[in-house]
Design a protein around this nucleic acid. Structure first.
Lengths: 205, 205
DNA sequence: TTACCTCTGTACCGAACAGTACAGAAGTTC
DNA sequence: GAACTTCTGTACTGTTCGGTACAGAGGTAA
């Protein structure tokens, strides 16, 4: 139901999805407003009216990316055991990387890896998001220790950090052009660091 | 021994080292010629005369970075066992990340993670370098299998990829501000994936 | 129809970008 | 000394950057 005034001629979400792909492929600083308006099919003033500017658009893009491309993360945390959580994360990422027609790698990792001084805030924003994901994972693993699902003595924070490091490394590797099949074999090695099934394995020391 | 003509007023290697730090912190596209000339203490024409331009300077910077900041890699490959190779790589990286006054993370990982279309070649150049490192590591692990140092049936390529993924992930994590002490605990978990000491462990499946 | 409101396209802003022409300075060789 | 060669600083090139002023188009509400 449009209010008064001329109605917007584009769909905000479709335009946002187009911006996701551009920022994903080219990073924050590698993307110009010309790239964005061309991909989104809108004029520059429309972009400013709808999203506020380049940086605000980027933040909206990251939020959208997390909702769509990283939906597997939320689902993974709900798995019943720590090992299944880790498995769902690693496999979910591999599935996400396998999708055709999308840029390689991960927007959150490569979107603002290193930036000029003026855009340091953007890099910090992405880094904080990744560390928040790690913290959520650590909390989940701490619960697993409480539940006896992970062996007592397990350091949940260290395990979460290890897993997050692997996920980030896989993203870097995927961006370099390595395919999901090859990444799956290294993911399998990583998965062994997470004790499986009740108390049948020894605790990591 | 200077030849004819006015002698250069700056030291090429010192200027290169200054450029390393700038590119390391801000990435390829995040670094402007103004940033470079200011840090290097030279004028723009001097930069062009000595290095050829921004991209050529960046390639020289990466070569210099590999020689200095990544010297531990070459040394690690000479260790007698696969486990020691992996340990030397992980610890060498941690030591490198611990050095004060230098930018966080790794130039090779974050220097051109995502770039505009016009600079795609720079990103490919860095990615190829990382994959070459992984290939060298795979070769080293294949030798370890031959020597009986790694259990028969071990996939050296997969193990090398895993380790490289972890190293890249640690670099991303370090760039986010995570300290070496915290990274060391995840490195320890990664190290367990590399069988140690003769045939005392089972082969990874 | 009239009044009002919001979006769209053009055209522009100052600033920064990578790269270079050119004149003069500072050395060497003869 | 003169001739030659190379480097340095200033000033400039055209282009692109993110962001915006403004006029007109396209709607709603009375």
């Amino acid at each position: 139901m449009p209010g008064p005034g001329r109605p917007r001629e584009f769909d905000r979400t479709s335009a946002l999805d187009a911006a996701v792909r551009v920022f994903w492929r080219q990073g924050y600083e590698g993307t110009s407003l010309r790239d964005l308006t061309a991909a989104m099919g809108i004029g520059r003033p429309s972009l400013y009216a709808a999203f506020g500017g380049k940086e605000q658009l980027f933040r909206a893009v990251v939020a959208r990316y997390r909702e769509t491309e990283m939906a597997y993360v939320r689902a993974a945390l709900d798995r019943p055991t720590a090992h299944e959580v880790a498995e769902a994360l690693l496999h979910g990422q591999l599935d996400a990387l396998r999708r055709p027609g999308l840029p390689a790698g991960c927007l959150s990792v490569q979107g603002a890896a290193a930036v000029s001084a003026g855009n340091a805030g953007v890099a910090e924003f992405l880094a904080a998001g990744r560390l928040a994901g790690e913290a959520a994972l650590a909390e989940r693993f701490a619960r697993a220790v409480d539940e006896g699902d992970l062996p007592p003595g397990t350091d949940p924070a260290a395990l979460a950090r290890f897993l997050q490091v692997v996920l980030e490394g896989q993203a870097v590797h995927a961006a370099a052009g390595v395919g999901s099949a090859d990444l799956a074999r290294s993911a399998e090695l990583a998965l062994r660091a997470v004790p499986a099934g009740g108390r049948r394995r020894r605790a990591p020391r």
